[in-house]
Design a protein around this nucleic acid. Structure first.
Length: 854
RNA sequence: GCCCGAGUGGCGGAAUGGUAGACGCAGCGGAUUCAAAAUCCGCCGCCGCAAGGCGUGAGAGUUCGAAUCUCUCCUCGGGCACCA
């Protein structure tokens, strides 16, 4: 008897698939197409167990669709620009490109071990000049259509390193390297006009039927459509009015002060003549630019001494404050504060001792606001204290509408639809990204590069020397020659834009590029028509908002420029967001209270606890995100080396539902391997069987087989991979105990191999060949369940008494209701419970359950 | 701070209004073995000798019937625009 040996099986079948070109996507008009895409990886250099899960899922779909007669596109590429390459360059003195290319080579080799059904002929990296050159062409088209523009935006500025920081490089408000307090600073930057599509991006969500509700909700909230009032506060000193937008104009009578951002033009104007204000603004600009940092930072304010007039009462003056929690890039960069009905404003007013005026009360409760603001609900009735609209009991929405109508009538404000969605700032002051193809000319101003001059390549060095990444700042900026060029318009001397593009730009259209990866234009109409849209997109929930929204915007913008057909403006028909692979953390604490982490291989698990070799008990923190510093990272290569790729694939797909996190356990992986060995050795048994006599159990086995075909097919179609695998386990148990004939068993084994093949393709291929299957299992059509076997003649009905299961009865499937009722009432358990009384009610749900109500 | 999601045996989970705990792990008993590993067979929510009772984070509600729907609370996780 042979042993299951994945190390010999897996390379063999990988070579067979490659030789046959099984996974190359071809446009075949005779078949329905299916485009399955997993979010492409960042080439960190090493395959992570999370990758195995993500790509195993996509591969299940791809292989299943291939088997069910589709022409499948399942490509792979690399999201290769980004910060980690520059960090590596800084730390190790390697060039970002060299580092990235090495990583890609490593990861590609590791991906190869997994036996994924990928079309590698379409591979590209976003740092390939052939890719980012086309991205530059897109940028120029967008610019011509008015979809890109420049404006000032806030960045994190490290005053010591004199460099822009990514949010991730800001730790507790300080620069990660310098430890200096980060400031917010304004730079002129490029923006995509995603706000042009805000309404469409929002309403189109309604038609994304195969997206998770969770993601759709997050996108809706992100776009954040709101109706409000825009109006100006007249300044008492006669200066320009301060424009304000509010979604709660109904609380206007509770106004306490007018607040402006430290970056508001007025704040800057005041700064010039008042050193105190200048000093405050510097202080207020400290801290990161994230919404979280803004919202949780300690609230700081400065009374400018200016006054404005309340629009509803010219005699009522409000002070103007500068406040650090007001963001310039949001609305008009100025607000009116209503402390009684907004918690943030309330906190601020309590701190600076500003008045709090109640204008709403909950019905039946006139307690004035103290420490908790009362936000008037929009749809429930509340008591509106001031009666200028003539309404006493109104909903928040009615009050809002009445106030807007009043403002418009009186001519001091206008109703406005505002989106939370801000335009997408794409400029990055970094080297390792796609250069923005724009030139600045003293005579002609901002000029897009001519398309024939594309691609604008990143310089590999600093002219005469290698780029030194340890020097802060952008190497493109200090490059001796790169930025100097001729104006595309007047041919006079000009300078290039030295900012590069956000890496989100790279990933916003790669799915379209996969349809024609070698084209001399961003896309090719014929290929885009055939392959788009992505039928199934799979990736992490962490991309629920930005990447997916940007991609939806890009598809629309590309359609405007003629790079995608109109049908492809919503690029992902179905989306699946998978969970993480987690692993327990093993931790001990030293005498001084310092935490120490331990590698899983150093911990012995017994009696429900974990112990080190010297007997010390470790604390086990289950299901933690894998992190190198916590010593709980599982290397998939170790697993593949020990058990093979099929085991790794089988394990990450079993146990947990795919959208949820799965915890990696060594015992789980081992169990997966044991199971696959068991399936593999079932073949031996068959060969030893008598071939002639049909067995007694044939009917039973075939019934189970068809049920399993049905259940597993359903499971794969609905992303219930864990449930499908459970059915396969159950069927394996049935099969291994079956006394059915050789013929029936052989049929069952072939079906089992095929049903497992999306998950364990190598093993299945081997069984297929051993049992004399025709051609490759990967190219064989999917088995179809015979309906005749799925219908049971008799069914077991559970009997509930008052909703609790107390007995059961087996009846023929078309027994009339009256006879079922009689049968139920004759049951001992039912008689006992009834004690000669008649039941109050008898509910018979045909084919499901009976409930006796007493 | 704001937004979103998840809580079911010792553990991962199944069941999306109809028999709670499928399937797997761990554990227990047995077979095989000189012995062990591997393999195979069986048991396995909790309390109880049993009959029976209890049981899906907590509390309430809707329903003949709730893990599933509604409300309140608790705990954990994710996202928040320059990480990808």
């Amino acid at each position: 008897m042979q042993k299951y040996d994945p190390a010999s099986i897996e390379p063999k079948w990988q070579a067979a698939w490659e030789g046959a070109g099984t996974f190359e996507a071809v446009r075949d008009p005779s078949k329905p197409k299916y485009y399955v895409l997993e979010m492409f990886p960042y080439p960190s250099g090493n395959l992570h167990i999370g990758h195995v899960r993500n790509y195993a899922m996509g591969d299940v779909v791809a292989r299943f669709k291939r088997a069910t007669g589709h022409s499948v596109l399942h490509p792979m590429g690399w999201d290769a620009f980004g910060l980690p390459a520059e960090n590596a360059a800084m730390e190790r003195g390697v060039h970002p490109e060299a580092w990235t290319r090495d990583n890609i080579a490593n990861m590609k080799q590791q991906f190869g071990l997994l036996g994924l059904s990928l079309d590698w002929t379409r591979e590209f990296a976003t740092c390939d000049v052939e890719y980012y050159g086309q991205q530059q062409a897109l940028f120029i088209d967008f610019l011509e259509k008015g979809l890109v523009y420049r404006k000032a935006a806030t960045v994190n500025w490290d005053p010591v390193d004199m460099t822009v920081l990514a949010n991730e490089q800001v730790i507790d408000g300080k620069g990660w390297r310098s430890d200096a307090e980060v400031e917010r600073r304004e730079l002129t930057q490029w923006f995509f006009k995603i706000s042009d599509f805000a309404e469409d991006l929002l309403t189109a969500i309604d038609h994304l039927d195969n997206w998770p509700d969770k993601v759709k909700l997050m996108q809706r909230n992100w776009i954040g459509k709101s109706q409000g009032l825009k109006f100006g506060f007249e300044r008492s000193d006669g200066g320009d009015p301060i424009e304000v937008f509010t979604t709660r104009p109904d609380t206007l009578l509770g106004a306490s002060f007018v607040g402006i951002s430290p970056d508001h033009p007025l704040a800057k104007e005041l700064e010039a003549g008042n050193p105190e204000i200048a000093a405050f603004n510097v202080e207020a600009r400290k801290g990161g630019t994230t919404e979280e940092a803004m919202e949780t930072a300690e609230k700081l304010g400065f009374d400018t001494g200016l006054k404005v007039r309340h629009p509803l009462n010219p005699d009522w003056e409000l002070p103007v404050w500068i406040a650090n929690f007001i963001l310039m890039g949001y609305g008009t960069g100025a607000i009116f504060a209503c402390p009684a009905h907004d918690q943030r404003d309330l906190d601020f007013c309590r701190k600076y001792d500003l008045p709090v005026i109640d204008t709403f009360f909950a019905l039946g409760d006139d307690t004035p606001v103290t420490d908790t603001a009362f936000v008037p609900p929009k749809t429930e009735k509340v008591r509106f204290v001031d009666h200028f609209t003539g309404l006493a009991e109104v909903t928040g929405q009615e009050a809002i509408d009445a106030t807007i109508a009043y403002a418009e009538e009186e001519g001091w404000g206008e109703g406005l639809t505002q989106f939370r969605l801000r335009d997408w700032g794409l400029s990055r002051q970094r080297y390792w990204g796609c250069p923005i193809p724009v030139v600045y000319c003293d005579t002609c101003g901002v000029v897009p590069e001519k398309k024939e001059n594309l691609p604008i390549e990143l310089p590999k060095d600093e002219g005469n020397k290698p780029i030194d990444f340890s020097v802060p700042g952008n190497p493109l900026d200090r490059h001796p020659t790169w930025r100097h060029t001729a104006c595309p318009k007047c041919d006079g001397p000009a300078t290039r834009e030295t900012d590069t593009m956000d890496t989100f730009v790279d990933s916003s259209w790669y799915y379209a590029r996969f349809t024609a990866p070698r084209a001399k234009t961003p896309t090719l109409a014929e290929d885009a028509e055939y392959w788009m849209n992505v039928d199934q997109y799979i990736g992490g929930i962490e991309h629920a908002i930005l990447h997916l929204l940007y991609s939806r915007f890009f598809a629309r913008a590309m359609e405007v420029c003629g790079h995608l057909p109109e049908a492809a403006i919503e690029p992902f028909d179905a989306l699946f967001t998978q969970g993480m692979v987690t692993h327990a953390i093993y931790q001990t604490e030293s005498a001084d209270g310092r935490k120490q982490f331990h590698y899983p291989e150093d911990v012995e698990l017994r009696d429900g606890g974990g112990y080190l070799k010297d007997g010390t008990e470790v604390t086990i923190i289950p299901s933690a995100k894998m992190s190198k510093s916590k010593y709980n990272v599982v290397n998939p290569l170790d697993i593949i080396g020990r058990f093979g790729a099929d085991t790794a694939r089988w394990f990450v797909l079993s146990d947990s539902p795919p959208e949820r996190d799965v915890e990696w356990t060594a015992s789980g992986a081992e169990a997966a391997f044991k199971h696959l060995s068991r399936v593999w050795s079932l073949c031996d048994r068959i060969d030893a069987m008598d071939t002639s006599a049909p067995g007694d159990g044939d009917e039973d086995l075939l019934r189970q087989m068809h049920k399993t075909i049905h259940d597993v097919t359903m499971g794969i179609e609905t992303f219930g991979f864990n449930a499908a695998i459970a059915k396969l386990y159950a069927f394996t148990n049935v099969l291994s105990k079956s006394k059915a004939s050789h013929g029936a068993q052989r049929q069952a084994i072939m079906a089992l191999a095929q049903l497992m093949s999306p998950m364990t393709p190598h093993l299945s291929e081997d069984i297929w060949a051993n049992q004399g299957g025709e051609g490759l299992c990967a190219e064989a059509p999917w088995p179809v369940a015979d309906e005749a076997y799925l219908i049971e003649d008799s069914i077991t009905l559970p009997i509930q008494i008052n909703g609790k299961r107390r007995a059961e009865v087996t009846v023929s499937k078309d027994l009339p209701k009256a006879e079922i009722e009689a049968l139920v009432l004759s049951q001992d358990a039912v008689k006992r419970a009834l004690e000669d009384r008649a039941p109050k009610k008898l509910i018979v749900v045909p084919g499901r359950i009976v409930n006796v109500v007493i």
